[in-house]
Design a protein around this nucleic acid. Sequence first.
DNA 1: TGCAACTATAGATTATTTTGATAACTTTGC
DNA 2: GCAAAGTTATCAAAATAATCTATAGTTGCA
Lengths: 297, 297
Amino acid sequence: MTIIQLEYLLAVANCGSFSAASELCFVTQPSLSMQIKNLEEELGVILLDRSKKPVIPTDAGETVIRNAREAIKAYNYIKESVAELKGEIAGHLKLGVIPTIAPYLLHRFIPGFLARYPKVELEVKEMKTADIFKALGHDSLDAAIIAGGMCPDEIAEQELFDDRFFAYVSPLNPLYERNNVRIEDIDMKELLLLSDGHCLRDQILELCHAHRAVHSTCSFESGSLDTLMRIVDNTGGMTIIPEMALPYVPDQRKNQIKTLAKGATSRKITIAVRRTYVKSSLINALKKSIMECVSAN
Amino acid sequence: MTIIQLEYLLAVANCGSFSAASELCFVTQPSLSMQIKNLEEELGVILLDRSKKPVIPTDAGETVIRNAREAIKAYNYIKESVAELKGEIAGHLKLGVIPTIAPYLLHRFIPGFLARYPKVELEVKEMKTADIFKALGHDSLDAAIIAGGMCPDEIAEQELFDDRFFAYVSPLNPLYERNNVRIEDIDMKELLLLSDGHCLRDQILELCHAHRAVHSTCSFESGSLDTLMRIVDNTGGMTIIPEMALPYVPDQRKNQIKTLAKGATSRKITIAVRRTYVKSSLINALKKSIMECVSAN
DNA sequence: TGCAACTATAGATTATTTTGATAACTTTGC
DNA sequence: GCAAAGTTATCAAAATAATCTATAGTTGCA
């Protein structure tokens, strides 16, 4: 039983196919098949059910895969601890970012981060929060930038900064006349929201429901805040946007931005990592880069 | 960085010598030296200081060794979990037993245990409690049978049974006339004790000190209870022996055994294992075997 | 039935590990 | 200080293991 065999097994478990896994591992398919066969022979159990499409683990396979993930984590942590000891900021960092943060934050810290730590290979992926938690769980991600506050136990959060909410109101909307919008004045029928699965959507709904019991359906939904704002511009509606989106509102639209009155009208931006065997030196470097470019404002 | 390299490293760390480690790993010394060199090259740090005798780890080596132990544990646990899944009671079990338990318990359960689980390779070692805790820490032992109650945090105990204390009194001693001895009647000058490091010695001292503040030096010390009893027979002294030793007192000496009056006059016999990645199926089998032969009395 | 996509098998090739012999280096005792 | 003993490093050859290419055998789907 070698580390390579375990890595091949995890690759198959992750992508549900021998041939796809072999590409991921940069070997030919027979090579990978052979190693998995050897592993099964040594353990004396069939680990994968090849008759199913996609290939799924057997019960024994589930157990081995679960434990193998732990073992590989501990194994990788050895190299990591040495790098940290040497003070080297190097290695591969897989970072997830939620869609309501990515367009406003990524381009600000990534150039600086890469310039400062040239040995780091950064791989960024835009993902929704639920997928991020799953990916952190089986090491498809090392860390993620999310709106915090509802992490499962096995994920740890480090707070970066607070991100206030603002109303973005169409000139055709009666609220356009105000400079400060009260939550209870918002007409839910005119509130445009992100599509399901975006945590910003849930946060905004929660914000509104805290002030009124009505559960209203929304007239339009989109996956992108920018799209949402453009729709607002051309209808009588409104939406709620985070502070980090403000600089990207065109100047002639700036007067459509309204502050929100009182209450917990903000989200916390955090870095989420799994609790065991994190690439702590890389994460700290990342945190430093983000904090610097945020506080530079 | 392969598992074998890590195992070689741990072997050197455990025995302080390349050549000794190579015997332990069943390879030649050049082979082991080469692999360690490769590991050092890959990690980019010197792990072992060869100038010292015995060879000691560098600071980086300490870190790597610590993390490698964790990784190897997790790695071994994979096989173990499969064995457990298959319901197989098999594998290698390294068991430590303290000297005041070994001669009275081992021979009773070992034959039955080995007969019942023929695939288990049992390796028993008589060790003092402090050494057992250390050995459990770096996997030189899988489990141990000890007198419980003072385990460090990282060691877990499972209670087996209670073992009462009895007085074993010389016919020449005034207490010989009694059937029940009170702790406070014992003359510390006549109490023979095991040599330093035996936990039974500490337990008895504690027992006596709880009843009187005097701190007396003992006139004689031995490493074996049997020796102690033979000395008692031929002097006017006495000692304290555990219940499990009673059947091995010769019949003509049985009347030298006296019960002890009230108080916590017993020790708890427990199985100690480290908290992570234990060979739980093996341990359970062991526990079962011991409990059966103990309750058979 | 036949095509497409997938996994298994086989033999040749390449890479890695181990070995045995030996050299270089440390300690220890005299 | 200088052998003698013990320990680690080096090197080329042999043994072992992993990979590749090519191909055969599956399975699912039209």
